[in-house]
């Protein structure tokens, strides 16, 4: 599917999605729309986004943005899904039941950015020690002990 078709198809599913064209289409969604959209992207035969190859978060100081990079191993088209989250209490529905790889990636984002993933099967710290305070990849994170200022 070409990017134009993809954008059109996405807006069929949910007209409220705004999509930027680019190398890969960027879909901006609300966090509340994600639980409906994600299964649709995965299961719809024309889209069949079955491969989540990157899941991350960006701290924009005013808000957080979840970024999902999706591709289809059948149709070879790409989609980037972005969702703005509130910085104080970021929360979004997990996709680890749809793309199993998300389980680890979401745990990483959880400890690094403090995003809470609803209904995640095992939302614990994966990399950091269990008693770690703060979210290291946020822009305002300060750690006087472990960070070396050069």
């Amino acid at each position: 599917m070409t990017n134009e078709e993809l954008i059109a198809r996405l807006q069929d599913i949910d007209p409220s999605i705004s999509v930027d064209a680019g190398e890969w289409p960027n879909a901006h969604i609300e966090a509340t729309a994600w639980p409906v959209l994600a299964p649709a992207l995965r299961l719809c035969d024309e889209l069949a986004f079955d491969y989540l190859f990157c899941l991350t978060c960006v701290d924009w100081k005013t808000h957080l943005t979840m970024v999902y990079h999706l591709t289809s191993t059948r149709h070879r088209h790409h989609l980037v899904v972005k969702s703005k989250l509130d910085r104080e209490a970021p929360s979004i529905r997990t996709v680890s039941d749809i793309w199993r790889t998300a389980e680890f990636h979401e745990r990483e984002v959880f400890e690094m950015f403090g995003v809470h993933f609803e209904e995640h099967p095992d939302l614990r710290k994966l990399i950091l020690p269990d008693d770690w305070q703060g979210y290291p990849l946020r822009k305002d994170y300060e750690d006087p002990v472990n960070m070396i200022k050069l």
């Binding site: 190859f53 990157c54 991350t56 960006v58 990079h69 790889t101 680890f104 990636h105």
Partner: peptide
């Protein structure tokens, strides 16, 4: 860079280990 994310192959592959 404002933010860099490295998508490393090992991380995803490891998640399949348990299964």
């Amino acid at each position: 860079p404002y933010r860099i994310k490295y998508r490393s192959p090992g991380f995803s592959n490891l998640s399949a280990l348990d299964h």
